[in-house]
């Protein structure tokens, strides 16, 4: 089993996302995360899918994705040098001085940002690799997490490696 990040460009048309999602459920492939948004070219959306499977399954996944009419181009980011980042928003209980100090200290250590403050909570924003985001979440668990929102991974190739048409 190999964790794989697939980046793809698809026509920015309604229904394209459900074709991709439907493909994964119909053929029983795993999706760890899936992100999608328009790009600088507004006729295209860029999607990052994190999945896992044996080499032959990953090969089938890329072939099946390529077969979808709306998929313009795709690459397996994990086949080469790449950067993958994820955004997490986490709201924790910060009701007294001790809690507020501890949350702030941990947040500084992990280089997060406090983006909302109330009498009883802090909301933090953290960007990084999945490992870092998860480590931060584990650390915060000692305090009390109210809710967690993760964006799923967005990835990009390093240097000259680019997915464009």
């Amino acid at each position: 089993m190999k964790r794989t990040i697939i980046s793809l460009l698809l026509e920015n048309e309604s229904g394209a996302l459900s074709r991709v999602a439907g493909l994964f459920s119909a053929r029983g492939y795993n999706i760890e995360s899936l992100t999608v948004a328009p790009t600088d070219d507004d006729s295209l959306s860029r999607m990052t899918i994190v999945t896992d499977g044996s080499d032959s399954i990953i090969e089938q996944i890329t072939k099946q994705l390529n077969k979808l009419i709306e998929v313009v181009k795709l690459i397996d980011l994990t086949e080469g040098e790449h950067i993958a980042r994820e955004l997490m928003l986490v709201k924790v209980v910060a009701a007294n001085n001790d809690q507020r100090e501890e949350v702030k200290r941990l947040n500084d250590i992990f280089r997060g940002r406090i983006i909302d403050v109330t009498d009883s909570t802090y909301t933090l924003e953290m960007t990084g690799t999945s490992a870092k985001v998860e480590a931060f979440m584990d650390t915060l668990a000692k305090i009390e997490i109210v809710e967690v929102v993760r964006s799923g991974i967005s990835g990009i190739g390093r240097g000259k490696r680019a997915l464009k048409i």
């Binding site: 032959s56 090969e59 089938q60 072939k63 099946q64 390529n66 077969k67």
Partner: peptide
């Protein structure tokens, strides 16, 4: 003609 038919079940 379909790449996804190649190597799907048998190497």
């Amino acid at each position: 003609i379909d790449p996804s038919s190649i190597g799907k079940n048998v190497a």
